[in-house]
């Protein structure tokens, strides 16, 4: 078992609304993020992701529960570990009338880091030629980049990113994704909260899904999305194909979703395994479509079930990648 970088048990946060009502943003949340790799932190709007992150970072006080960063109890021992944690919480927040560079200088000097650290951070997010402009003149994407640059000032071992690609253009999203992936590969643990699930699925090794402030699912992404893909095949003789595949050990079912005669659903890791098995028996496919349950589907199922209180229904969507 690997060491845990972030732990939370029974985490709870209550807010008083303006009218004095109690709003429970986080209720009894357990969180465990292992060291290394990129960990997705997912949940619908208002499910308590930002609130959880703010509690971990000492910006908000937990109503109940315990938290640990690098094994140290926080917020009590936060000063001891905060130097190893970089974070972007929700929107980038800087002084609008200072330049991007001045904003970073103030932060890096407050931890006694040399000013050269700022140059490196600015360069690694591609802001070098705009860092002497006022922050308020930045586009949203540039503000996000500056916020990410700020997290790099500490040379962090843990990066907590709350929707870091919010407002970035496609090239920017890819850049940040590559950067996150690179950091993850370099041994930095990243907690990534994002609504772009295709993004998360591409970079995350594990994920936690929450809804209404509660844990819904947590684990490795492969485990969350389930095992093998399902392939829909069309063959001239469905019965022969079915017996061939079943004797080869595949799980096969007739497609009942109004498809023409001769259509089967086969579970297999790769489509090539199916074609090879059938070709060996002299059966040739006229069509093959692969469907893999993706994170988005799983997410929607889990969170819909959570909000509706209903049962999970097995359901798969077409695999965009056609892998």
């Amino acid at each position: 078992m690997s060491e845990l970088v972030i732990e939370a048990e029974g985490l709870r946060k209550e807010f008083r609304t303006r009218r004095g009502e109690l709003r429970v943003a986080v209720q009894g949340l357990d969180l465990a993020v292992p060291a290394g790799g990129v960990h997705g932190f997912l949940g619908p709007n208002g499910s308590g992701k930002t609130t959880t992150i703010r509690m971990l970072l000492g910006l908000a006080r937990a109503t109940a529960g315990t938290m640990r960063l690098f094994g140290q109890p926080v917020p009590r021992r936060l000063p001891a570990v905060v130097g190893r944690v970089g974070a972007v919480v929700e929107m980038p927040k800087f002084s609008p009338n200072l330049t991007g560079r001045q904003n970073l200088l103030l932060l890096s000097r407050s931890i006694g880091a040399p000013d050269t650290r700022v140059d490196a951070a600015v360069e690694s997010v591609g802001l070098t030629d705009r860092d002497r402009d006022r922050y308020k003149s930045y586009s949203l994407g540039m503000k996000q980049r500056l916020a990410i640059a700020a997290t790099l000032l500490k040379d962090p071992e843990l990066l907590i990113l709350d929707e870091p690609t919010n407002g970035l253009d496609p090239a920017g999203i890819r850049e940040i994704r590559d950067m996150i992936r690179g950091l993850g590969a370099a041994g930095v643990t990243v907690l990534l909260s994002s609504h772009i699930l295709a993004e998360v699925q591409q970079v995350c090794s594990s994920a936690t899904i929450i809804g209404n402030g509660r844990l819904l699912a947590s684990g490795r992404v492969e485990d969350l999305v389930g095992g093998d893909a399902v392939h829909r095949i069309s063959v001239p003789d469905a019965a022969a194909a079915r017996s061939t595949l079943e004797s080869a050990g595949f799980v096969v079912a007739p497609d009942s979703s109004g498809q023409p005669e001769g259509t089967l659903l086969v579970e297999a890791e790769r489509p090539a395994e199916v074609t090879r098995a059938l070709a060996g028996a002299g059966i040739w496919l006229s069509e093959l479509t692969s469907m893999r349950p993706d994170l988005e589907t799983v997410f929607l199922q889990l969170t819909a079930a959570d909000t509706l209180g209903g049962h999970l229904t097995a359901h798969t969507g077409p695999d965009g990648g056609r892998s």
Partner: peptide, 18 residues
């Protein structure tokens, strides 16, 4: 007041939580 207005207070606390 400017620190609060711009929200940069939270950013400062991420660097010095005391």
């Amino acid at each position: 007041g400017h620190d609060w207005n711009s929200g940069s207070m939270s950013n400062q606390l991420l660097f010095e939580p005391r």
